[in-house]
């Protein structure tokens, strides 16, 4: 029984790590642009398909395919920001509808390019790291956890220690005051989208061999990410990380000990409860970042 519990903790940690990557990107974009990006799950999906194209089809090294995923999805994010989201700045409904349109487009492009069927991706590594008697974690999952910690740590340093990071936080706190100080809103939005999309792309690329990779894979991720950002307080990066951990543990434990559909219901009810009691989220404030 202890083994099962410990194993579930390990699995939940893995789930929390890639969910945190997706959710933090979503929060960053919302913070700077005031737009909720429904297509964020599709950025995740694009990252996974980069692995399909580069690693599974062209047989190039796995880490290279992850790097391609990061760069490619980041570019897609920047292009979407410039063409679609910047005109919708501070127009929440318009931005939301545009992101739904983008979601449909990216899903169909993936379907047209690769087909609707699930992709087979050979596992880059079969190694299982034994943590204790009867408790193990596949190396592939351990890599996801370590990468998430490293990337989120780097993001934290970037936001706290660099001028661009300060500019980004300033434009999230008060766009007008930031603009008066000479911070370019256009550049801030572009950076936010580049980083947010890249994080989702990396999460998708790293987890591609571990999950079912198909054009609609973004759906379950985006629902989980929405729950996380609402529970964590929309606009709060630390809240998103903590909520990702809380949600992943709740979801993994209920999945393991009850069943998966009930776990989904529990997650959604958790979000509804937060929306009813404290719509600013458990860690949110009235400010956006």
């Amino acid at each position: 029984m202890t083994e099962l519990l410990l194993q579930t903790v390990v699995n939940a940690t893995y789930a929390a790590s890639y969910l945190a990557l997706v959710a933090v990107g979503l929060v960053l974009i919302f913070g700077v642009m005031g737009i909720i990006n429904f297509a964020h799950g599709e950025f995740y999906m694009l990252g996974a398909y980069c692995v399909v194209a580069v690693y599974a089809d062209l047989a190039l090294p796995f880490l290279l395919s992850v790097a391609v995923g990061l760069v490619f999805v980041s570019l897609v994010g920047m292009a979407a920001e410039r063409a679609l989201f910047r005109p919708m700045r501070e127009n929440p409904l318009g931005g939301l509808v545009v992101s739904i349109g983008l979601l449909l487009i990216l899903q169909s492009l993936a379907t047209l390019g690769f087909g609707v069927r699930m992709e087979h991706i050979p596992p880059p590594s079969q190694t299982v790291v034994q943590l204790a008697e009867g408790v193990g974690i596949p190396l592939q999952r351990l890599v996801v956890i370590l990468a998430a910690v490293a990337l989120l740590g780097a993001l934290w340093l970037f936001l706290r220690r660099t001028r661009w990071g300060w500019a980004l936080r300033a434009s999230a706190q008060d766009p007008e005051a930031a603009a008066l100080q000479g911070i370019s809103m256009a550049v801030a939005s572009r950076i936010a989208f580049a980083i947010g999309a890249a994080l989702a792309g990396v999460a998708g690329a790293l987890t591609a061999p571990l999950v079912r990779t198909y054009p609609y894979m973004g759906h379950s991720v985006i629902v989980a990410a929405f729950i996380v950002i609402i529970v964590g307080g929309i606009g709060s990066l630390e809240g998103a990380v903590l909520a990702a951990i809380a949600y992943a543990f709740a979801h993994t434990f209920v999945t393991t000990f009850v069943d998966g559909v009930i776990a989904d219901i529990v997650g959604l009810l958790l979000m509804l409860a937060v929306l009813i009691v404290k719509p600013t989220g458990l860690f949110g404030s009235r400010d956006r970042a």
Partner: peptide, 14 residues
Amino acid sequence: RPLIYGVVLIAFVV
């Protein structure tokens, strides 16, 4: 169909 709906949706909002 979803592709075209996506394009139509964006075109109209913009």
